[in-house]
C-alpha cells in the first residue's frame, strides 16, 4: 500500500500525488540534504512520519516498514550485546511493540527514530539481560494540543546526519571502542576515557528543543 516515495515526506497529511515532489523540495532546505545517501536510512525523515502515522491512525503498513528496517538491527544489536538468537528475536518483537505503544512519546525535535529505537532496545537489554530496572527521567511530551515545528524536526535530522559523518570519520580504534561501549562491552569505568565525542552541535539543538517543549508545556 505504501511505497518509499509516497511515505517519504514529513508533511502532514501526506497526499498520494504531490508527496514525492514536496519531499524532494524539503530534502534541500537551506542547501543541506536531509538524507545523505540512499543507504543512510536512519536519517530519512520519513521514519518520523511513519511513527506519526502509527500514533495518529494505528497505521499497520507504516509499522510493517519500520519493522522491516529496524527489527533485524535490534536483533543484531541484542545478539552482539550477549543475547542468544532466540531471546534476541523475542526481545526485538517486544521492542517494536513498545515503539507502537509509545509512539505518542516520540519527539522528533530531540531524536531520530533510530535514536529512539536504540533507547528502547537498550532498556530492553538492561531489563532482560542484566535483570535490572532502568530508571528514566521524567517523561516530557508535546501532548495533543502542541506539535513541534517541522523546521525543528528537519534540522534535528540534519544535525544527526552530520554527527554520523563525524563519527564515521573517527580513527578505527576509537570507533570500535565507542561501539563496544554501546554494545555493553565496556564497564562504566572504562567508558571514562571515551568522552570528547563531537556532540556540541546536536547537544545545542536538543537543548533548544527542550526549551521550546518546556514553553509549550507551560
Amino acid at each position: 500500500m505504501f511505497t518509499e516515495m509516497n511515505t517519504a515526506t514529513i508533511d502532514e497529511p501526506p497526499t498520494e500525488t504531490v508527496v514525492s515532489r514536496s519531499w524532494r523540495a524539503k530534502k534541500h532546505i537551506k542547501g543541506k540534504p536531509v538524507n545523505g545517501t540512499k543507504e543512510s536510512c536512519d536519517t530519512r525523515a520519513e521514519w518520523v512520519d511513519h511513527v506519526k502515522r502509527i500514533r495518529d491512525t494505528q497505521d499497520q503498513a507504516a509499522f510493517a516498514e519500520l519493522f522491516q528496517h529496524f527489527a533485524p538491527r535490534i536483533k543484531a544489536f541484542l545478539i552482539r550485546s550477549g543475547s542468544d538468537p532466540a531471546m534476541a528475536e523475542e526481545c526485538a518483537q517486544e521492542v517494536m511493540a513498545t515503539l507502537w505503544h509509545k509512539a505518542r512519546l516520540f519527539d522528533p525535535t530531540r531524536a531520530t527514530v533510530a535514536t529512539w529505537v536504540f533507547t528502547i532496545a537498550r532498556n530492553k537489554r538492561i531489563d532482560v539481560l542484566r535483570k535490572q530496572r532502568r530508571p528514566e527521567p521524567e517523561e516530557l511530551g508535546w501532548g495533543p494540543e502542541a506539535e513541534p515545528e517541522q523546521d525543528d524536526v528537519i534540522v534535528l535530522q540534519q544535525e544527526t546526519a552530520q554527527l554520523r559523518t563525524a563519527l564515521s570519520a573517527l580513527p578505527d580504534a576509537q570507533r570500535q571502542l565507542i561501539e563496544k561501549a554501546y554494545f555493553g562491552d565496556l564497564s562504566h569505568r572504562e567508558i571514562a576515557s571515551q568522552t570528547g565525542l563531537p556532540l556540541g552541535t546536536i547537544k545545542s539543538r536538543i537543548r533548544l528543543a527542550l526549551d521550546r517543549l518546556r514553553h509549550a508545556m507551560n
Binding site: 536510512c41 536512519d42 531524536a111 529512539w116 536504540f118 554501546y182
Partner: peptide
Amino acid sequence: AVGGHVLE
C-alpha cells in the same frame, strides 16, 4: 544519538 548511529 551516538547509540542510534551504532544501532543503525
